[in-house]
């Protein structure tokens, strides 16, 4: 096997052809019903969410949705949510708690959208609220980084009992470009930054940030999508079964401890 660099993974994670949140939702679950809106301001299309069946278990699924071409990406704002997206996600997660449904989130974003409207409507507050609320939800939460997991915009749907990454996904504090621009004062040094940021699945497993890596073919998830979905489904069923054995109190306590030691 040839050596794949961290930057190669960043490139793979961003590929247009790479399966997106809705692809996973449609393949792993049945009877998906998409639900819209945050009930305050609008419906952010860069986050999709709803109810679906995992085998026979009703679950709430939420995902950051990128497009596969320019048109779709315009519609999805390149997977960069505004506060409404995070507030919709939180609404659906609270709903899941009410009906005792496990929550599965798919993370795939270059980051929360840094626009004027987003700031005016409290991007920071929206993310903060999600982190706080997710930490105490009384239902199992499994978060899967399927592509690019960048900054607080990724973490805002990423506080779970199990954190999973696809083999070629990346998860980091900021995009390598942003990181290079801050630390090396030169965004063109993104490649170099990527190597130093410890953003690959393997690095994050080693650092104890994630629990599981789901393998994918060297040239990207789109080349063996069916197998990845099967493995993912198997993992979800197994872990949800385990997590559902815990009392609500144990579940929340375990989640607190998970992040407490980080």
């Amino acid at each position: 096997m040839s050596k794949i660099t961290a930057w190669d993974k960043v490139t793979l994670a961003r590929e247009l052809a790479r399966p997106k949140a809705i692809d996973y939702i449609n393949n792993i679950f049945q009877e998906f019903v998409e639900l819209h809106g945050d009930r305050y301001f609008g419906d952010d299309k860069s986050i999709v969410g709803g109810i679906a069946l995992l085998e026979k278990i009703p679950v709430t699924v939420i995902g950051e949705q990128k497009g596969k071409n320019i048109k779709e990406n315009m519609e999805r704002n390149f997977g960069m949510p505004e506060p409404e997206g995070y507030r919709k996600a939180l609404r659906l997660m609270k709903q899941a708690e009410k009906f005792k449904r496990p929550i599965i989130t798919f993370i795939d974003t270059p980051g929360a959208y840094p626009g004027m409207g987003a700031e005016e409507r409290g991007q920071g507050e929206a993310i903060a609220k999600n982190l706080m609320e997710m930490s105490k939800l009384k239902v199992p939460i499994i978060c899967i980084v399927i592509g690019e997991g960048s900054s607080g915009g990724a973490l805002a749907i990423g506080v779970g009992d199990k954190i999973v990454m696809l083999e070629n996904a990346v998860y980091s504090i900021l995009s390598p470009e942003g990181f290079a621009s801050i630390l090396y004062k030169d965004s063109s040094k993104a490649k170099e930054a990527a190597e130093n940021m410890k953003l690959t699945a393997k690095d994050l497993k080693k650092l104890g940030i994630i629990d599981k890596i789901i393998e994918e073919p060297e040239n990207g998830a789109q080349n063996d999508f069916e197998t990845i979905c099967e493995n993912m489904k198997e993992y979800l069923l197994k872990e949800i079964k385990k997590l559902e054995k815990l009392t609500e109190r144990e579940l929340v306590e375990q989640r607190y401890k998970k992040f407490r030691v980080m």
Binding site: I127, A128, L131, S135, S151, G152, L155, G158, V159, Y171, S172, I173, M197, K198, L199, L204, L207, I209, F259, R260, M262
Partner: peptide
């Protein structure tokens, strides 16, 4: 890096 990000959750 990512360890800093996790402080937000913590």
């Amino acid at each position: 890096g990512i360890v800093s990000l996790m402080q937000m959750a913590k």
